[in-house]
């Protein structure tokens, strides 16, 4: 139907397994150490009729050089809250309560938490890092904690608060690919080319 959003075609033509494979392939084969990749999917808001970017899919890899006993920046209370949320989400997905001392009770790192809360976010056209990239049809590449912190985009500052040093948003067909890393990764055209090839859904 013509009333459906452009993004619907991706869901039909490229199921979530395919999206996942592409996101995973993008950062598992990269020379850079990306912590996660997210596909923000463009759709039309039913009420306003405006374009909006919402969660399409994501792949969390984690920090490659993360020591086993990292002291998280999160306070004890915050850590307990994260574990409780994760436990509840786990129960919701599996349909059964997680057993005591399950893996779900392991420390929830800052970047894991940032990735999780990303699932609840959406961006109006032109707003936030993904919205800006889509609106201008130009990549946004923020490298360095200071640049993330100085950004007027809440998502960039939030990411910095969770230990990210680099956030990149690259427009693709029907959405935006976001890459994030706890390491400093300077802009390079290889990454942008790779995204364009991997997420050119028309080919």
């Amino acid at each position: 139907p013509t009333s459906s959003s452009a993004s619907t075609s991706i869901v039909n033509d490229f199921n979530q397994d395919t999206l996942q494979q592409r996101l995973q392939g993008l950062i598992d084969t990269a020379r850079e150490s990306w912590t996660y990749a997210i596909f923000w999917q463009s759709s039309i808001d039913d009420y306003s009729g405006h374009s909006v970017l919402g969660w399409g899919d994501g792949y969390y890899k984690g920090e490659v050089n993360k020591p086993k006993t990292t002291q998280s920046a999160a306070s004890l209370a915050e850590q307990q809250y994260r574990k409780r949320v994760l436990r509840e989400l786990n129960s919701m997905i599996s349909g059964t309560p997680a057993p005591e001392n399950d893996a779900v009770d392991e420390e929830v790192t800052d970047t894991e938490w940032f990735f999780l809360i990303s699932m609840t976010q959406s961006f109006a056209n032109g707003n936030g890092l993904p919205g800006q990239a889509a609106f201008n049809n130009q990549p946004v590449w923020l490298a360095g904690s200071d640049r993330l912190l100085a950004s007027h985009c809440e998502r960039a500052r939030q990411g910095q608060g969770f230990g990210l040093q680099t956030i990149v948003c690259i427009p693709s067909a029907d959405g935006v690919i976001e890459l994030g890393s706890t390491e400093l990764i300077l802009q390079n055209s290889d990454v942008m080319k790779k995204v364009r090839v991997s997420f050119d859904f028309n080919n």
């Binding site: 993004s7 619907t8 979530q16 969660w55 899919d57 989400l89 392991e106 999780l116 699932m119």
Partner: peptide, 26 residues
């Protein structure tokens, strides 16, 4: 049902599964 909540649920399930694998192997 909208595709977005479905996508979130699938992503969440995958994230939790991979997390369990990471924790078990560490």
């Amino acid at each position: 049902q909208s595709a977005v909540p479905q996508a979130r649920k699938a992503s969440l399930a995958r994230f939790l599964e991979k997390r369990k694998e990471r924790v078990m192997s560490s």
